[in-house]
């Protein structure tokens, strides 16, 4: 059985918990979902989901809860919106003291579309099929490394991408397995379980 943690210090946590539970049901897989707020919650996690929310707040709360370094050791991580910013190697337009987990070889620009009046909905095409996507004060994925695979684009913007980090590059904490990261600029948790299903399938395939 897989154990999936959802970072639960702030953001649309319940939406992700529901989405990943529904995704597991559709795949007929047993998945335990736990809320992550402190160090002991990280023990034994197969994967972590970082929800939408305020990335500056995430960083501060993760630091103050003493889980920031521990999160880096989770082998599989899905990040949406603020969660994608947390995954990125580089973030633009962050606050002066904000640090990301720097796990995934992507660059993300915070609030790149502008304020709330620039938030939008659109039907998008992805490698998982067509879906309705919701962008709220969304970031843009402005650069992806050569090992990062793009899963969705819209108006020349990268909306979703994934990266497998080979065991050589990854830390020894994960034994012989590699790490897997999935970053999205929008909020699949509000409209579909397709990306959560994909995330679970990828973890199970490793």
């Amino acid at each position: 059985m897989l154990t999936i943690g959802v970072l639960a210090l702030q953001g649309d946590v319940s939406e992700h918990i529901e989405a990943v539970k529904n995704a597991a049901k559709k795949l007929h897989k047993d998945v335990a979902v736990i809320s992550v707020r402190e160090k002991k919650d990280l023990a034994g996690l197969d994967a972590l989901i970082m929800p939408g929310g305020e990335s500056t707040t995430f960083y501060k709360l993760c630091q103050r809860a003493g889980i920031f370094e521990g999160m880096k050791k989770i082998p599989n991580i899905l990040g949406t919106c603020a969660g994608a910013i947390m995954l990125s190697k580089n973030a633009q337009n962050k606050t002066k003291d904000q640090v990301t987990l720097q796990l995934m070889d992507i660059e993300v620009a915070r609030n790149a579309y502008g304020r709330q009046n620039e938030s939008f909905e659109a039907d998008i095409k992805t490698s998982l099929g067509a879906m309705h996507a919701i962008f709220i004060r969304a970031p843009k994925i402005t650069r992806v490394g050569k090992n990062v695979r793009v899963l969705a684009e819209y108006n020349n913007e990268i909306l979703a991408c994934e990266e497998e980090v080979s065991p050589v590059r990854s830390s020894a904490s994960n034994g012989a397995k590699g790490n897997y990261y999935l970053a999205l600029a929008f909020h699949p948790e509000l409209t579909t379980t397709l990306f959560h299903e994909y995330f679970l399938r990828r973890i199970l395939a490793v």
Partner: peptide
């Protein structure tokens, strides 16, 4: 849209 309006509030939860 209403979904976007209510959606921003969802992102503020726990805050």
């Amino acid at each position: 849209t209403f979904e976007l309006k209510a959606g921003l509030a969802r992102m503020l939860k726990g805050g």
